[in-house]
């Protein structure tokens, strides 16, 4: 069975992973209730989207 000849050093592994960082998504604020939410999405708190309420939330 084919097997790696050498251990991958810490440096080498870390170098490989230097481009793997995940950037946090940019959040927008709901104009109705101010909740932070991803853009282009119905507000999870108040159901507001582009000037009207799309999902009725039970209060």
């Amino acid at each position: 069975m084919a097997v790696p000849k050498r251990k991958i050093s810490r440096t080498r592994g870390r170098k490989r992973r230097s481009h793997n960082a995940v950037t946090p998504i940019k959040l927008q604020f709901c104009p109705q209730c101010g909740t932070a939410k991803p853009s282009h999405v119905i507000c999870p708190n108040c159901g507001h989207y582009q000037g009207r309420t799309l999902v009725e939330t039970e209060d």
Binding site: K37, P38, H40, V41, I42, C43, P44, Y49, L54, V55
Partner: peptide, 11 residues
């Protein structure tokens, strides 16, 4: 035409 709309949900 354009009888439906698709809107994304946060969840």
């Amino acid at each position: 035409g354009g009888y439906t709309r698709i809107v994304r949900i946060a969840a």
